[in-house]
Design a protein around this nucleic acid. Sequence first.
RNA 1: GAAUCGGUAGCUCAGCUGGUAGAGCAGCGGCCUUUUAAGCCGCGGGUCGAGGGUUCGAGCCCCUCCCGAUUCACCA
Length: 510
Amino acid sequence: MSNPDPSLSEQQQIRLEKLNQLRELNINPYPYQYDVTHHTTEISDDESFVIDPSGGTENAKRVAIAGRVITRRIMGKASFFTLQDSQGVIQVYIRRDDVGVDEYNKVFKKLVDIGDFVGIKGFVFKTRTGETTVHAEEFEFLGKTVRPLPTPKEVENEEGEVVTYDAFSDKELRYRQRYVDLVVNPEVKETFIKRTRMVQTMRDFMNERGYLEVETPILQPIYGGASARPFVTHHNALDMQLYLRIANELYLKRLIVGGFDGVYEFSKDFRNEGLSRFHNPEFTQVELYVAYKDYNWMMDFMEEMVENVAVTLHGSTKVKSGEHEIDFKRPWPRIPMYEAIEKETGHNLYGKTEVEILTIARELKIPIEDGMGKGKLIDEIFGEYVEPKLIQPTFITDYPIEMSPLAKKHRSKEGLVERFEAICNGKEIANAFSELNDPVDQRKRFEEQTRLRSEGDDEAMTLDEDFLRAIEYGMPPTAGIGIGIDRLAMIMTNSESIRDVLFFPLMRPE
RNA sequence: GAAUCGGUAGCUCAGCUGGUAGAGCAGCGGCCUUUUAAGCCGCGGGUCGAGGGUUCGAGCCCCUCCCGAUUCACCA
């Protein structure tokens, strides 16, 4: 072995040595292309490929497949191995007398490892035990793996259940090395494909209705549109402090001012807060704003869109999530927030003063902190007593004005705004309102936020003078919504952590 | 930020009351032309998360730190 690097494991050193040996045999370990004719699943799903080789193979259909070797069973002059491509796996049968003595003995048996990429041309048959198998007539090396892959084994036991041995199951390693997780844990790929199909379904749904997909700034001089702490960055040439967006609401509303009927954006947002099973510092929302509509219309819209997602992904409005079965069938219950709180706590908070609500919060054993206004107190009571109980999709409507500086005053209920949150599986999945388009009122609300900030609420919104200027030019009646894509994806894929629906969740450095 | 559990071979894990670090898979050498966790014979592989302490002796006991998972608290 030439100059083995002692920092590498024995297996890595051996694989690097095999790489050299391939080159010495004039085999490029990293060739440029291979003409694939079929995916593994197209072959295993279609009986018409299968022939009986004893009747001659001249007229058999030929297939060319490519992928990784993931298991091997070498039996002297013939071998079986499992080849995995993007779609699935298929077994390959390879014999010395078909592919050539040197190719088989020197290359396949000695220099191919689990994880390596190979190309196979051949015909399809069934083994004695009935497994559809590609009989290799030509074998080509397509890429050397110099680091050993984890080697889980899937076995069907006598009850027909698939049992996995030696699974790559360490969550830390799976999140840090998602590429490996994707190779060896097939259900991971399924989850992410579902997530993408979910987004695709929503995008199609909005496009069909004529709404325009747009892009707005991620780097913002004033962050707004939500209550959260931002990430701060700096632009050198302008010597200017910038924030990574916490929401794109204020920009999309500027576009409604500009005259679009409907605009939406799948938006990566950034909030400088802790990590948990439900929170990653960067996360995805889709925000949609539609002119001349209100929050009642938006509830209809959301129900229909999300029901559509469930049916597209699962063929049913019912989706299994942990121990629950969630049914997205329309219509979803619509419950005013105060009614929901009264139902669970017995307290009707409507029209109560801040002091009265504080007393009730104490009685309900809500942890009280200084500077918690009326809105915050109500939100706490709701979060503690109501939200966790809402498993089936539910709209909670009509929030206190103190909690909602960008929402329009309720048309008939004093002190409330026309806002709803969609709650599902005990968590908020969407937040929407009839958008505030009265510039004078909006300025007052911002000023109130400024006051809260000066009292120490570091999540209060900053006054955005340019946004006010925009709506002073006039914004039509507008309905707006933000839907949490990660949270919805968790439900739709039965994932218990947000990390399971993010390819690369934030981790501490190794 | 707090509590609990965990970190041992490439992967999954054992490791007793503190007494020379183990298994299966993977790897290496050999046999094997329909196997399928293929099989059979043989072999190698370790900074036991890091550092310190107690001890004749530490994977194991004590202290500090690092990393992760879960739960709780804040936020979507």
